[in-house]
């Protein structure tokens, strides 16, 4: 953990409104998750109990407490995506990535990572791209009108190999 980097982030938030969530989000942007030491550091710097930061990190679905894979695949599970087959897309991705359904993380969130740490798979409640349903996001790129047929093709562009 780079303390200076986190100090810079903390300094950026001179506004009290939205400060804590903003700081945690920025830290997650660097590490893709919230390392324990970073939370301890923020707790000390801002004089906020670590337990409170932990409750925030587990309450909001955006935060991860465990390291994640190189590429994060998020399946939108909004209503439009649901009626257009998002569940089948998710199941298919789990099969393709060989991720076991029962592997839920300690904090109860749905966030699954492949053994080689190449991919993490999770779900979102709605991206607001409902007109393009079903939708998935890989890292920052959103794919609309996704079909089961083209999933392997999308995965291959991120270095996936069929086993």
């Amino acid at each position: 953990m780079n303390k200076e980097q986190i100090e810079d982030i903390i300094r950026k938030y001179d506004n009290h409104e939205g400060r804590i969530l903003g700081i945690l989000e920025d830290i997650q942007e660097i590490y893709k998750y919230l390392p324990k030491e970073s939370l301890e550091f923020v707790s000390e710097k801002l004089d906020i109990p670590l337990s409170k930061l932990y409750s925030i990190a587990t309450f909001y679905s955006f935060f991860n407490l465990k390291p994640v894979g190189e590429h994060i695949i998020t399946v939108c599970m909004g209503t439009a995506c649901h009626v257009r087959g998002a569940k089948d897309i998710l199941n298919n991705l789990m099969e393709l990535l060989k991720i076991d359904v029962n592997e839920t993380t300690e904090d109860g969130k749905f966030f699954l990572t492949t053994e080689d740490k190449h991919f993490s798979l999770n779900t979102a409640r709605c991206f607001g791209c409902c007109s393009m349903a079903p939708v998935i996001r890989v890292d920052d790129k959103i794919y609309g009108y996704v079909t089961i047929k083209e999933l392997p093709k999308i995965l291959k562009t991120y270095g996936w190999k069929s086993k």
Binding site: N15, E17, G18, L21, G22, L24, E25, I56, F59, Y60, S61, F62, F63, A124, R125
Partner: peptide, 10 residues
């Protein structure tokens, strides 16, 4: 005006 970000809680 300032912006405050949520973190995924309906």
């Amino acid at each position: 005006i300032t912006i405050s970000k949520g973190a995924g809680a309906f």
